[in-house]
Each structure stands twice: as structure tokens, then as C-alpha cells.
Design a protein around this nucleic acid. Structure first.
Lengths: 378, 378
DNA sequence: CTGTTAGCGCTTTCAA
DNA sequence: TTGAAAGCGCTAACAG
């Protein structure tokens, strides 16, 4: 359908054929005084060329006030001419600062980014990055090992998403005395954490379905890697407790006939896929309580394409309230959690830790949730 | 609506009150042989404690094969006991590798993450990160300066999104000889780049609208920071050319009466907001060609809430084809671009550069687009 | 198989 | 105002 066919082509645009890649003086002086090994200009090169000490060069960049205006400008001029810029790694080794905050996520990046919830979380973290001048490092497992990734990460500290406190990653962070904040998990008192009221949220969702008269309800959870939901931990456990509490009010439990727990990847595709399992149930459930909006979207789409009408044949209530959830067809009934704020608060907490140098009292933040009833539940 | 009210609370869960934070031997030996300054265990501490050289310790971690099994295990044991882990910054200073790939984005993170297109792009980049064992660093402007952020970034190289070749950031990258790939921009022949056929895509979209009979068409572009669309560059210019080409076939131009160009932030909010401007036009346009799906979603939502029916009163065609675009109400007609692949190809290109050490011939990849007609256009 | 030695490129006392 | 020198914590020839 397109003009070009996905083939690699040379565009040959080259608007600036004569573009100077290295600054003028560099090439010549490079040879003059054999530069340090691999060709990159270092602080010594500048010092030599400018006939000052390395100290002076360093000052010129970091505390120009401590140099006479003349020297400072001279040094900077030489640096510019030679195309010099301080090596950030060497600098970090001294300052012990990287100006990056890490987001440790338990899955690979493609999986993470398939779940729009993370984009929301990152928006919040990003607000703090913006104020504090930080970059944001996504730290997924490295060759399968999240600990290895953690060991290798060049960051000032981390936000740890959805890991349990006894996870090796947390141990590694603690050992290296890297400040961190835990998000979406049960954290012990001495560790900073941010959560939302998952239990209450799930309870509201289930109660809503029950009040609507539903009694055959599927709970769509996320891949947990445990044998059964009784072994859930962290937010999954919290939410199951919420569901259970609501069911209990109607004399039901998670093990009652009609109630069942299905799992899928937390993404649209995951939801689409889990519908197969759901419709294979007989009798088919009349409602689904889904642990993430993206999954709910996928579920609804799959339902529709299989002729199962939402909400008539299947009521669906999600969890998150992503920005797009009310643009859907039908608009999604869901439990709103302040995902952006979650990220922001976590990052703020992290900054506190970072600046207090371990002296800060760890805080535990719990954010509220609310049920948003729209069209996908009747 | 929630049980707890967003107040900071102490959860006091502390399942492991006796949790040992530092490994056993650490605290004692710490005092024994005054550890290097600030308390963190270094390679020297381990060397001393294990009665071997620093080299041996280094080998134990990086090339255990070069040590006798005994020594290696002894060293590792001591390290474990003292809670030692190599400092990744010091290591990077030597190896010149950070195992991180940077994504240089021209806006702040919150703005970036509000545009779901980036999540798609990152999915693709993430696939490569996964294979190569990289982390992904989001590099937004630092205190307003993207160049400063670039200088400070601890990465092996970068993917540069939407910047022109003559941007100072690109100059900085070139100067420091940091490998990079440009995405979504006109890149000169000697620089690796990945693009989609923006021009063709826009042309198809406009032609579609024109064929449907529309003659009063608003083009919704993204914030450009230039005075008028004639000054657009990069993908915006490409797309405008596409629109213009289609219009030309019907004897129209971008300056014809009935045609107008509006700008907004590339997000749902942006689209919602720009609808105000669109409806202020008189006569109101009967169609909108939008440069991003997220904006189109917002536009459609705002239209609906103002009683303007889509597609009856306003036909809308987007650009991107995000995963959620066909879940919308109405499902969005749009130009599909392979965003995930774009990210993947860019990252792959980057890896080639990185491994070839500058010897690689820069490639230019152009990916195809296609028009997906759904319900938002009639 | 193991250790000595010299860096990596920069910051930062301390003294001049 | 400037510079000498001692690191930051680790890697990697090169010897032995």
C-alpha cells in the first residue's frame, strides 16, 4: 500500500555534504600531542593545550567562579575548539551521582510497555525527573536475571515495581546501600513504599457486580507464576482479598461454584487471549472482574468478535482507569487508581531518601481508589 | 470512596523484623580494617580479607575460569559474606560499556508518555534490549537543555527521536563519538536512520477524505514551535507534502479556503483541547486529518461531548494505528505505521554501529505505511 | 594460576 | 587564582 516497500533504501538526502564533524582544531592537534589512546579528547588534552592544570579545566566546567574570567573563558574556548566534553562516567565515579533514577520492572520491556498502566506510572515519575533533572532508566531483567541488571545499573537509586521484599533484587539494593522505594507490594516498615488501596478497590468492583445480580463471575488476574491464587502475594493477594470480602457478604467465596480465577498477560493481547478460556467455561460466566484495564479491553474486543455482547451477555469491570478507558466501546466500568500520582509520589519519596542520605524516616503512602461505573457493566 | 483517604499511613507490616540487612561478617570486619571512606565495600577490602590481589577478585567476578576453582570460590565466598558487589561505574570507566541504550526525546517525560506512540516505539527498542542485555534510558531535556542531558547520559549510545540533524544534540553525540541512530527525521547519508513513509501515509489519508467528498478539512498537527507549516521540517514536513500532493490532485492546496492547519500537543488531552479551535472555525470543517491517533481520540471524544457526531458531522482520520484505535467508539480510520518495528529496527541499527566500532556503513531504513479504513470516516 | 603495575578520566583537598 | 597530587573503584596487560 505504500510507495516504498519496507526495503532498506539510501535516501541520499545529505543536505550538508560539507558538514564538519570534528571541530576545527581537533584533527590537527590530535596528532601533535598523541592523544590518550582511543582518540577521545580528555581533560589532560585540554589542560596541555590551554597550558593550565587539569584542576583548572575541571573548574572551568564545574565552578567557573573559582577561576579568573579570562582563564575560564580561555579554557572553555580551547575545549570547544577541540570538541571536549567531560566524560560523564569518570565524573560519576567521583561525584557518586549519575542523575538517573531506575525503574526496576520484573518483566522484559516489550511486555512492560504493552501494559499502558506503566506509561501512566512513568508519567508520574517523569514529573519528578523533570524537576530534579533526572533521566529515567528502565531496568528489565538482564539475560533473565533482574539481580544482574540491578548490579549493572548506573543509577542513583531505584523504584522497584511489584517485587516482594524478600526478592534478591531488594537484598542487592540494600547491600549496595542504594536508595529505593517499593511500589505495588507489601513492604516492611523500614522501607519506603507506595501503594493504592487494592483491597478496597477490588471489593468495590466485586460488590458492584454482585449488586447487579451476577453470580457466575470470572476473575481475570495477571500471570503470577504461582500454582493457585491462594499463593498470591503483593497486590494480587490484596485484590483477591477484596474480591473475597465482597463475595463473603453474599455468602460466597473465591472457591464457590460459578466463581473462577483465570490468568493472562497484563495487556490487550492477554485479555483477548484469555477470552478463549472464559468462553470455554460452562456455564459461561455472566461477568468478569479484570485486574487491569488493558486486559479488559482485549477481553471485550474478543467477546464482541465472538458475538458475546458486552455488557448484555458479559459484564466487565476493570482496574486502573486508563485514559482511554472511557473512549472504548462500550466505555469501561472500572476501579480508578491514581497511577500517575503513584509514580510521582514514589519518585518524590525516592528523592527524599537520596537527599537525606539514609537519615529519612521511610514513609508508606497509600492512595485511594474509586469505582467508576460506565457502560460495560449491567 | 476508598477506605483510606490518600493520607500517608504507616502500615507496620514488617513481616521480617529480624531481617539482616548487611551480611554477617560485614559489620565486624568493617571496623577491623578501616574500610575505604564512606562505608561501601570495595574490591580492595575483598582482596585484603581474602588474602589475594585485586586482580584475583576482579577475575573471580569476570573471568572465574582464569582462577583455580578453589581461589575463585573462596573469593566469591568472602565477597558474599562482606556484601560486596563490583561498582558498576568504576567498571564502566574501564570497560567503556554501560549496557544501556539511550532514547533521546525532545520533550519532558510526562509529555512523552502521554503519547501512546512512544510506548509502541519502546516496545520495539525493548525487544532488542532484551536480546542484547541492555537497559533503556529515557533522556529528556535536563533543566531545559537536551544537550546537557546528552552530555550527562551514562549510555553506550542513543536513539534520537525527531531531532533535526543540525540540532546541537546531534553535534554533541558526533563529537563524543557516541554511536546513534536517528528516528523520524531527515538524516544525511552518513548517519543511520529509521523512518516510515510519512509522505505517502499522509497522502493516502487525505486522498481518502477527498474521495469521500470532503472539501473543508482541518489538518491537526503537533506543536511545532515554528511560525507556520511552511517552516515545518522532518516528519511534519513530509506529511504536509503528502497532504498537499493529495489536495493537488483535486486542484486544492494547503492554503485553499476550507483547508486549515491546527496544532496541539500529541496526546488525548491535546486532541480534546484542539477541538475548541476546530469548532470555532466557520464554516466548521467536515473532516479532520490528524497527525496522531491519540490526538484523534481526544478530538473525537470532545466532538461527541459537544454533540458533533463522528463520522456524520465530522470525519476523522488518524495516524499511527495504535493498538487501542480499533477499540474506540467509533473505531478509528487511520494510517498504520509499524511503530514497534520502527523501534526495533532503530535499536538493531544501533547495535550494528556499536559493535562495528564506527566501521559500519550507515543504513537508512524506510518502513511502509498503510491506510486502515474503519468507522470514523464517511 | 596469581600478582604487580599502570591506567580509565575526572574531582577535590591542600598548599602555594 | 591556580596547581600538585591523591584518590574514586575497577580492569587488564604483562610478568612471574
Amino acid at each position: 500500500m505504500s510507495g516504498t516497500d519496507g526495503i532498506e533504501i539510501r535516501k541520499g538526502i545529505s543536505r550538508e555534504p560539507a558538514d564538519i564533524v570534528c571541530a576545527d582544531g581537533a584533527a590537527s592537534s590530535e596528532r601533535q600531542r598523541g592523544r590518550s589512546g582511543n582518540g577521545r579528547v580528555t581533560i589532560s588534552d585540554i589542560a596541555l593545550e590551554a597550558r593550565v592544570s587539569k584542576t583548572a579545566v575541571s573548574f572551568a566546567f564545574n565552578m567557573p567562579g573559582r577561576l579568573s574570567k579570562q582563564t575560564a573563558e580561555h579554557i572553555l574556548a580551547v575545549a570547544r575548539r577541540m570538541g571536549y566534553t567531560p566524560n560523564p562516567i569518570a565524573r560519576s565515579l567521583n561525584t557518586r551521582r549519575t542523575n538517573a533514577i531506575g525503574l526496576i520492572v520484573p518483566q522484559d520491556i516489550p511486555e512492560v510497555m504493552r501494559n499502558p498502566f506503566f506509561a501512566e506510572l512513568m508519567r508520574g515519575v517523569g514529573e519528578v525527573c523533570k524537576c530534579g533533572g533526572f533521566s529515567l532508566m528502565l531496568i528489565p531483567p538482564m539475560r533473565g536475571s533482574l539481580v544482574d541488571a540491578t548490579y549493572a545499573a548506573l543509577v542513583d537509586g531505584c523504584l522497584v515495581i511489584g517485587l516482594e521484599y524478600d526478592d534478591p533484587v531488594v537484598k542487592a539494593l540494600t547491600q549496595r546501600r542504594i536508595p529505593f522505594v517499593m511500589v505495588d507490594t507489601d513492604a516492611p516498615a523500614h522501607v519506603a513504599s507506595v501503594n493504592v488501596d487494592d483491597c478496597a478497590g477490588a471489593c468495590m468492583a466485586m460488590k458492584h457486580l454482585l449488586d447487579l445480580g451476577h453470580r457466575r463471575i470470572s476473575i481475570i488476574s495477571m500471570d503470577s507464576h504461582v500454582a493457585c491464587f491462594e499463593e498470591y502475594h503483593g497486590i494480587l493477594r490484596q485484590r483477591m482479598q477484596g474480591y473475597a470480602a465482597a463475595l463473603a457478604e453474599h455468602g460466597l467465596s473465591l472457591r464457590s461454584p460459578g466463581i473462577c480465577v483465570l490468568e493472562c498477560e497484563p495487556s490487550v493481547e492477554g485479555g483477548r487471549h484469555v477470552f478463549e478460556q472464559l468462553r470455554a467455561l460452562s456455564p459461561m460466566p455472566t461477568a468478569a472482574a479484570v485486574l487491569g484495564d488493558a486486559m479488559a479491553w482485549g477481553l471485550i474486543e474478543a467477546a464482541r468478535s465472538h458475538g458475546v455482547a458486552v455488557p448484555k451477555d458479559l459484564a466487565v469491570v476493570g482496574f486502573d482507569d486508563l485514559p482511554a478507558s472511557h473512549l472504548m466501546q462500550p466505555a469501561l466500568t472500572t476501579v480508578r487508581q491514581p497511577a500517575v500520582e503513584k509514580g510521582r509520589r514514589a519518585a518524590e519519596l525516592f528523592l527524599e531518601l537520596l537527599h537525606s542520605d539514609g537519615a529519612a524516616v521511610p514513609k508508606h503512602i497509600m492512595l485511594p481508589v474509586e469505582l467508576v461505573v460506565r457502560e460495560s457493566s449491567v
